[in-house]
Nucleic acid binder design. Sequence first.
DNA 1: TTGCAGTAGATACCTTTGTTTCTT
DNA 2: AAAGAAACTTTGGTATCTACTGCA
Length: 789
Amino acid sequence: MDGDLPKEYFELIRKTLNEKKREAVSGRPLKRKKRRNTRSTTEDVQNSSVEVIDLESNSNDVQLATEVIDLDSGGGEAITMLNSEVSEDQHDDSVDSDEFEDVEDTDFENLNDISITINKEEKPVHKNKTARKNVCSNEERRKRKFIHMFYLLCLLINGFLRNEWLNNSKLLSRLGDLIPEKVFEQLHPRKDEDMPLRSTRKLLDGLKKCMEIWNKHWRITKRYESIGCYMRFWDEFDEKWSGYSQSLNKKMFIKNVLKGVGDRDLAAQGFVALLRSCNLNARLVISMQPPDFTNLRTLESLSNSAVNVSYDDMIKYPLFWCEVWDKFGKKWITIDPINLKTIEQIRNASKLEPRGGAPKRRNQLRYVIGYDRKQGTRDITRRYAQWLNSKTRKKRITKDKEGEEWFNRAIYALNRRKRTKIDDYEDAYFDQRNANEGMPDNLQDLKNHPYYILERDLGKNQIIKPNAKESGYLKLNNRVHGVLKVYERKNVINLKSGKQWYMEGRVLKTGARCKKVIRKKNVRLSNIDDDNEEERLYSIDDTEIYRPPLASAFGEITKNTFGNIEVFVPSMIPANCCLIESPVAIKAAKFIGIEFAPAVTGFKFERGKRSKPILSGVVVSKLYREAVETAIAGIENSIEEDERKGFELNALEQWNKFLLKLRIKSQLNQVYGTVVEAEKKSVPVETPEAGGFFVTGSESVVGPNISNLNDCNVEMNDGSATNLSDQYSEGEPMGGFLPVSTERTKNGNFEEKQESDNEFSNNDESSNEFGGTKGTDDEYEDFMNDMEL
DNA sequence: TTGCAGTAGATACCTTTGTTTCTT
DNA sequence: AAAGAAACTTTGGTATCTACTGCA
């Protein structure tokens, strides 16, 4: 179709496109249909071109791919169509350009090189090439999340136990000797009524002294043998954890702390004990480093981009430190006595939050947990993470609701003390910090922010409260979008259609006004006469709880057009009725002949998009409740009885068949002499322990297995018979009857069986029908008569 | 080197009451 | 003749998340 276009056109287009690229004017967004088309390497292109020529050497021109240039729209947008994609179209000239996908202009440098995919076998190869290499599978994703949570839980419990060790009375009394009387007084200053800050000042001085004392006391600081408690990358879980410190028991722990020997973690923990020995309310604070579950890179890509973090960078920021309650300032004071050797009263940012690329790779501050001396456990990440809501939150398991509940449960389980005033003060401080964090200044952080939302990120069924004002603006460098409005999330209202509200047992109030009108999602489903493609949405304030009409005195219930009553929530049951859920409820209600309504409690969605109602029970007047329940019990009972009888009958039938076959066999043996049986190790007839029912692997029939009665020419599935024999001949006897046959031909068939088959079929064809699944009762009877049974 | 807007691709979620033909 | 079983049908739009790219 484009064969008529002269070459100059292409060059013109190419030129225009290149200019447009430079200007970076993005009109309507160009779509790339399939990456593999544009990404295919030149080699591929050439190869395929050659192949095409070979394949289509009869075609008039070398039109390998048709390229349609739409000159009218957008002044030079090029649209390509690939032969392979529309091979059925057979070069239809009348193809409308709208049918083609717009393709990004990246590959128009080589317009003469035409990319094309011909061989179907090649397609998956292309797909694999362009498939994401660095994203792990869904399963792996879940696994990582699980490991993250498990790891975190272990750390939480470990912290709790370690915190208990710190309360050891012997340890505390010995450590208390390290603190001179003067310093002790500084740590417990008198309250200055006029200027509480002065008391705080004294406390801080005392703490500084303590820190100095501790640094003198701690003589030997061991190097971490591996990476200590810092964060591991995912590929490091597959390696052997060599050099991980041997389990440290309580005794050794106390001994080492008193001696002042150990790694940085131990030093920090010991410092907490030191402060507790001075009767201060000191917290053991741990920044936990479970692996990053939001990092979805595969192990290969991880190891390729393995980031080497130097030891010094890694230990720059601590994982263990200390907090002391300042009762004058009603704040927690943070002390890191080892790594940064700092004391701080955190206002908006902490020095302990890792900064810079390298340290952050091994130390992502996400979960900071404080354990106090009364076995209280609290999540105090807020104090240390400057951008908790916009950045840190995304790396935490609490980023979704499920994870948050899990985490809260874990913390709750480890918090062994009642709430105190100190917690109130701290929560107030956290609220203050949340408020101070303010609005993010970039798009990424505004996504899923707990407090703010961009106007453009509002869902289709969401609106901002009518009189709410925007709380700020986000200025983008991009000239196209300019300034975006940001609202507080609490001003967002979720809307639902009338039908959706009905599913929650609510109906629109009279005179309710719709808040928003959207296009219906599935136009295709809606009937032809239902040309209303708009969906009106309402807020919860526009609705009220649905009160279904009461049943009449005779128990008559108002039903819908389908003859049902919908009970999606309990409030949708009429007040004087009840819902009885049972698979046989409808049957029971019918049986006793009362007024009832089948209850639709939900829908099931099957393929083909058709949904079907779930009729899980009936709604009846409360008067009939007992009657229906009794009837249901009766029906269930009788069903059970029937099942039992059926089972019994089936079993008896199988036995009957079996015995019949034995008779046939013995009769045949009498007439024609015994077939070689000596080689068969287990002859079912003579097996003494052969009793009871025998369930085969492939058949669900209960009863004796008949496959081993070769002489009776049991009509069997050859395949299943072979499989059975395979199973049994090699495995242990499974009890009961064993179709063991050791003679096999190369084809895997049983020689013996074949022989006997032939033998038998020659003698009596009609018996072929016997014993198999096809035989009917009449035939059995006939045969039994023949056998004079 | 780092941060970030924009984008593509993958995945998850929402959907919320058939019809025709044959057999018993 | 009526009732019931069986076969046929085999979406698709939107939201959300993540990695990647190119730019500053």
